[in-house]
Design a binder for these strands. Structure first.
Lengths: 218, 218
DNA sequence: AAAAATATTTAGGGCATCCTAACTATTATT
DNA sequence: AATAATAGTTAGGATGCCCTAAATATTTTT
């Protein structure tokens, strides 16, 4: 139906759209796809021709409904495969991304659905990112950023904002993971570091760390 | 490491090499890859340049050791994925081929090995084809073609020669599958049809059917 | 062994995706 | 508002893999 390249562009546009409210810029797409602006312009035109994005010269691209649908299918596959790798094949959460980037392009609805069923319809991937439902809707989420929580807040880590291996491995080292319990004891006035307990163990978390952890309250 | 197209060529050459003892012809490759002879010539030259096949103009192609190794890796992946689809995702044996054709190109040794382990190191895929070991050797096989067995022979179906959905579905209809027991009661002089019992149920199998079933004796 | 049939290769293009370099539009600075 | 800086587009070319048509080699037939 769509080429691998087209799917990658749609996915990238979808993700960049989440932050920036206007059209996704050529340069940001080029950076996120590790390609050059000229290639992006070309592809975006092609996608516009297929009614997957709407595109106005010099003003960036936005996914159409059709494009969003397709992007979500790819993201769904990516996150389901990541879940499968961790849940069933004992991959660590910092080593699933590249493989999932390949697996997300496998064309077989039957296969995705079977993986979904095998995992008992998971709501989130190993990084806590929500897995789109078949119909393109997202499961309801209710998460906050740890750095924005009040002193005294208690809850559970439910996701990471940054999924880079370097961050994930650091969390492993600190024994912080999805489902870890936390309680914020204090926040340093100087650098906004948190005095926090994770699964009962007290430690300090830098503001940058805390800004990349999603939590839910108990 | 290698492109999808290169991998497909290597695999096709490997399979065609099994029958024909001299080099694999341009035309047979073109047919089996559903492409044109001119494209084959071009690609075979490219593969020869990479030392994956040895090629003499007008006399066909043969895999080098390096090419064989690579072909076996792809075949291993294909057969492991087919096994996974049937064993863990409840695919039927007639619907795994196309998906496995995609999955076989996923680049991740860790992934293949994990699937292998998950399935407890299977020796054969759902069609009874042997799964190459990691080191490129094949598990020992000891199978015969049903049509060449003697009257009175007893044993177990262990594989199919033809894996086309049309044949596989027909076998399903007749309730013949891998591990079915058989006993040859008679062979018709006229058309070599077999009077046979499959799992105790007597039926007639045409010579053509019998020629596409592999068996092992008890 | 010459002619006919078949198989293979070469020549010349096409399409998808990428690239660099040159040009143009938009945005930021003064 | 003019100029400088930045972002985006266009032009032209490269690569990988495919194609058709024409040329050539091999094999089969007579």
């Amino acid at each position: 139906m769509f080429t691998r390249s087209e799917e990658n562009y749609l996915k990238a546009i979808f993700h960049l759209q989440q932050d920036a409210k206007d059209g996704v810029s050529t340069n940001s797409l080029a950076e996120s796809l590790d390609t050059k602006a000229a290639s992006v312009t070309e592809m975006v035109k092609k996608l516009a021709g297929k009614n997957l994005v709407s595109y106005k010269k010099y003003y960036g691209a936005t996914l159409t409904e059709k494009g969003t649908e397709q992007a979500l299918k790819v993201i769904r596959k990516h996150r389901l495969w990541e879940s499968f790798l961790v849940e069933r094949l004992d991959f660590n959460w910092d080593e699933v991304h590249d493989v999932a980037e390949q697996l997300e392009h496998i064309q077989s609805e039957k296969l995705v659905d079977a993986i979904d069923k095998l995992l008992d319809y998971p709501k989130a991937d190993p990084h806590g990112d929500p897995i789109p439902c078949k119909d393109g809707t997202f499961p309801k989420e209710n998460k906050s950023v740890l750095s924005e929580c009040e002193i005294g807040a208690k809850g559970v880590i439910v996701g990471v904002k940054d999924s880079s291996p370097i961050f994930l491995k650091y969390l492993d080292k600190l024994e912080i993971g999805i489902n870890s319990n936390f309680k914020i004891n204090d926040k340093e006035a100087f650098d906004a570091a948190l005095d926090i307990e994770i699964d009962g163990k007290p430690l300090q978390l830098s503001a940058k760390m805390a800004a990349n952890l999603f939590v839910e309250f108990l």
